[in-house]
Design a protein around this nucleic acid. Structure first.
Lengths: 233, 233
DNA sequence: TGACGAAAGTGAGCAGTGCTCTTGCTTTTC
DNA sequence: GAAAAGCAAGAGCACTGCTCACTTTCGTCA
């Protein structure tokens, strides 16, 4: 691709791109998404503001780069956490995913907010560039659930989860993701997914109240255990 | 208080305040929180920008007014939904709360994002003015759980939910809220609360994917049922 | 009734923002 | 070595939050 060209100019260009993303991440962490300013990035880069537009089309484009960067980092954190867990211990794997999501969110609250908080007004992440890295976490979760289902480790009542039109949607999802787990596993898995991010968001965004808990991790661990049970593990 | 004074001038002032909040809400709905501009509000109000500062201290102050307004509206929506439900049918009451939260969030996504999404950068809602209206929904939920507990309608294992320090925190919460339900009810209730907002946020913020479900309400209903079961109802 | 004083509204101005465009300069390529 | 492409600069436009000196309006009280 472009990095094989490696002319001096293209190498300088890529270095500048990396610098821009790096400085953008710093500003994101310190000032938040809406305060992200291309002019400020340009100042830190030691360059006049208009020069940045040679590299980044717009402020929204920079946000998109940071979104992709954030999804990648979160995905790497989850993968790293999974590396040390027995592939056959499905509950432990789901717990590891949950813990690593929470830990990463607390470590990078601004980036977490950019990915999972309210959308930045007037900005919409271009799906074709963000859905790939954006689905890594749920992808890993689905892998765990599917493996557990195949291994017969999921204990759930074989209940109907909704009207037929919903089963059709779930069947399509099953087909697209190439899994075999039944409706109830997928539906409850999505609840666990939303619950995981609900708990994480409440903690990161301070919805529980300033210091209601001396050790919020205790509460999260309990919630995570219940969520694991919710999917029948 | 001040509305009893009712001098002509104070009445005009209050009307202007209402207009500012109304226009602010309109802009919030159409453009989002970060795009909320005092100058634009002033234009719609038919007044020069600096005049608005006679009524509102700053842009953040306006955001605070909108936050309070939003919490009030959500609280009213929940109360209205509860009005028609049998007080003894605890599960139905919890379902009603959940449905009304979701419905209001879908009807007012921008306000919902302001309340429960990522915090607006550089802005922090002053707790002393927002915690009151901000706790109405969780307050109603706690009422339902407590009533169900007292009525013996909650079926949960009497399990330990975490280390002793967590029980201390839960005991403090129990005391402050004047309830009697045990740790597991409170802890699982908080999970249900976070789960409710996790599901709602995923739907409002489009995390499920553009149109993965023909009728997202089906999925939400299923999730709500599971959440109700999570608290033992 | 008329004068006074407080409140409301004005407009200029500062510092910041995103973004565009022209103008020079440097590097790559032919 | 000349042409083409890439890069940085700086001016400029329209917008933002917010302040301040100023004028107008209006309620109250003598």
């Amino acid at each position: 691709m472009s990095d094989t060209a490696s002319t001096p100019r293209s190498r300088a260009r890529e270095q500048t791109m990396r610098d821009i993303v790096r400085i953008g991440r710093e500003h994101l962490a310190t000032d938040g998404a809406a305060a992200l300013s291309l002019r400020a990035v340009a100042r830190d880069l030691g360059v006049v503001s208009s020069a940045v537009y040679r590299y980044v089309e717009s402020r929204d484009e920079l946000l998109t780069l940071l979104v992709i960067d954030g999804y990648d980092e979160l995905g790497n954190a989850v993968d790293a956490a999974l590396a040390g867990v027995d592939p056959a211990d499905h509950a432990a794997r789901m717990m590891a995913i949950g813990r690593s999501v929470r830990a990463w969110a607390l470590a990078e609250p601004a980036t977490y907010a950019l990915l999972f908080g309210s959308p930045v007004p007037g900005y919409e992440a271009p799906a074709e560039r963000t859905t790939g890295p954006g689905t890594r976490v749920i992808g890993r979760l689905v892998e765990v659930w599917e493996a557990a289902w195949v291994a017969g480790a999921i204990d759930l009542p074989d209940e109907s989860v909704g009207p037929r039109r919903m089963s059709r949607d779930l069947a399509r999802i099953r087909r697209e993701m190439g899994i075999t787990a039944p409706d109830v596993v997928i539906a409850r898995g999505m609840l666990a997914w939303a619950g995981l991010f609900g708990c994480t968001s409440f903690e990161v965004f301070g919805q529980y109240g300033a210091d209601a808990f001396a050790e919020p991790k205790d509460l999260f661990e309990h919630h995570l255990r219940v969520l694991v049970a919710t999917v029948g593990l």
